[in-house]
Design a protein around this nucleic acid. Sequence first.
DNA 1: TTGTAGGCGTTATCAG
DNA 2: CTGATAACGCCTACAA
Lengths: 331, 331
Amino acid sequence: MVTQKDVARMAGVSQPTVSLALKGNEGSVLPRATVNRVMSAVETLGYKPNRLAQALRTNQTNTIACLIPDITNPFYPSFVRGVQSAAEAYAYDVITVNTEGSRSRELHYLELALQGRVDGFVGSFFGISDQDIQTVEQMEVPIVRLEPSHKKIDSFWLDDVFVDNFSAMKKLTQFLINKGHIKIAIISGRGGPQNVRLSGYKAAMTGENLEPRMHIVDKFTEFDGYNASKAILKVSTHPTAIIAANDLMAIGVMRAINEANLRIPEDIAVAGFDNIPASQLVYPTLTTVERYQDRLGNLAVNLLMARLKSKEKFPRQVAEGDYKIIERNST
Amino acid sequence: MVTQKDVARMAGVSQPTVSLALKGNEGSVLPRATVNRVMSAVETLGYKPNRLAQALRTNQTNTIACLIPDITNPFYPSFVRGVQSAAEAYAYDVITVNTEGSRSRELHYLELALQGRVDGFVGSFFGISDQDIQTVEQMEVPIVRLEPSHKKIDSFWLDDVFVDNFSAMKKLTQFLINKGHIKIAIISGRGGPQNVRLSGYKAAMTGENLEPRMHIVDKFTEFDGYNASKAILKVSTHPTAIIAANDLMAIGVMRAINEANLRIPEDIAVAGFDNIPASQLVYPTLTTVERYQDRLGNLAVNLLMARLKSKEKFPRQVAEGDYKIIERNST
DNA sequence: TTGTAGGCGTTATCAG
DNA sequence: CTGATAACGCCTACAA
């Protein structure tokens, strides 16, 4: 490994001088000539700074961790992508970790910071509830969470980015109502973002004096959507539109409708949530809600960097991301 | 940050003794009592070893980099997952990087090793051609590539894992032939794995004295599959089966067939390659080839670890992964 | 303008 | 059995 010492020897200067020359101070205390000599030595030797040593000395690793429940869940890769590209712009590395959404694993990975491995966190913390905030506060590590809604808490370390799932689902429901649908059912789970979406649906329906038809499921796969719709379609007064709280379930809904020999959207309209890649590959293509996860990733990193670059604590930041109803052929 | 010094003070020993106690030598030179005192101090103080400092000292970071072209490409997440879970078992961290498949970015990220940030690499190197091997050799960093076929080269640092794309596609084609198809077309690109698959198709067809019908495309999206099939379907003697070199294109093929008011599989059978999540969400579900990417990820990490754990160089390793024809409703 | 000295937290090699 | 001591590569005073 080529070190500053090697460079120093070659340039005929001392090692600290090399260090100085490399950081290229604009007010440069060093004379041009010296800097040039050092630089050409760096060049010919192929010196690369050892970032571990830098980190040990400066106490910052230029690395952040990105925690997500599961990289194979189609919602996350583009968030990760957004995080990585933003981080790269700041010359930061990203360690991506699958937490399985479990609290213990989330807490476990937060220890990466205590081991001096990362400077901060970005990601989706399902497990860490508001009562863990104390723990987090005393770790004194900046964290930016990806949340389903605006949470009001006090903290000097926990920032949030969020998309307003409530109004997104409210708007999606309203969109169907405006299309003339009266009997609109929803299939949704109770956890995390899905619960918030459920409320949005309810708000839209009751706001128009329509009766909410809610079908609660435990898990959120295509299969769960399929099963739930089977039940829904059995009833003779079945709805003319079904909303699923995510695209995977919506695709299951579509299959059930197909098998019942009903047409989409003529007999029953279907809408989903998330705009996963598959949503435009199914037939008919699925109306859904885009959350611009890549931008959320960017946003999250920007908030994190604001903290990392600032020497002083400052109160919690919350940034809202865009969403958009994507109208396709299923409605 | 709690350091060994703090622990030492609390346990009434010197700092190096703490270091000794922690690594729990089985032949333990240290008396039980001392170890216990140290351990309880570790416990109460919540000491976590600073891995940067360890890395600086030992010259190994316990981190590997996973290079892939694009995390949003549905093929990769489960490979990454496999890599991460295997690495975790070895107590290694994984830094995942998107290279865009560009040679310059791949070479750039290989510098992570020179910066002392990672111990080795795993992933898909599209850009690094065989002529870069010299460069790689003199970096003296272990790399395990995910390759589309068995490549015979000499190296002490480059290992490969691969799935035999040639025989997989040959088998898939044979599968269709056995179903009675005579006129079977393929839509494929020329690059990387697709080229190998193309050869497999050709081998199967000529082996049965059937005329290959090859449609070469430049890119490999759903849209490209759609366009290519439009052309194919125009001809009156159109094939009774279409193979696409990946699932995304196959799904495009299915759409084109739908729009031509033909039935799948009665009029035309369709098969893809990769078993991406969407392939079982489309209607009808798509017959395709599973490559068990998660296992490949595991395998790759295992090969890498063999090198990292061994103090001596040894000749190149090549490991073959499984594949399987997944028969679904499109054939 | 440059070099010397000290230290970041750890491990390894010695004496004692 | 244990405690100094040095070293990993780098950065930051401060002194020359």
